[in-house]
């Protein structure tokens, strides 16, 4: 069982309020090392210099969206195996298929309860302690 406190997380969302809400939920689950960025390009640059185990990213962002970030991570030699959970306001089939084809680890549609986020994380990492 992985300790949540040992998992480094990057939260990516263009809305500061959403980032804060996710951060609070993660802290409640026991995560300690939580970083966040307001754009996919900033997040990608940040995790290239300081790797994380888990990226939780919004889909709908201006410029570089969540799919672009997922593609960038999966095609990066060093970051390719980073766990990626996508958040979106839409369950659009095309986006889900695209994300799945690119190797997204899980997918959550907003608005979600904090418990649903925890469940998605645990499906990838196993039960958190």
């Amino acid at each position: 069982m992985p300790a949540a406190s040992a998992i480094k997380v990057m939260v990516v969302d263009d809305q500061a309020s959403m980032r804060a809400m996710i951060r609070r939920a993660l802290q409640d689950f026991g995560f300690k090392d939580i970083r966040d960025k307001g754009s996919a390009s900033e997040a990608f640059a940040a995790i290239r210099t300081d790797r994380v185990h888990l990226v939780i990213s919004d889909y709908n962002m201006p410029d570089m969206d969540g799919i672009d970030l997922l593609r960038a991570i999966r095609t990066d030699e060093v970051l390719a195996k980073t766990v990626f959970i996508m958040l979106t306001g839409s369950s659009d089939r095309e986006i889900v298929q695209k994300a799945a084809a690119l190797g997204v680890n899980n997918y959550l549609v907003k608005p979600f309860a904090p418990a649903a986020l925890k469940e998605k994380i645990e499906r990838v990492f196993g039960a958190l302690t």
Binding site: G89, S90, S91, V96, A100, V104, N106, Y107, L108, V109, K110, P111, F112, A113, A116, R123
Partner: peptide, 11 residues
């Protein structure tokens, strides 16, 4: 609410 809100079963 959007269809499938909160849940999509990928795996």
């Amino acid at each position: 609410i959007p269809a499938g809100c909160g849940e999509i079963e990928l795996f």
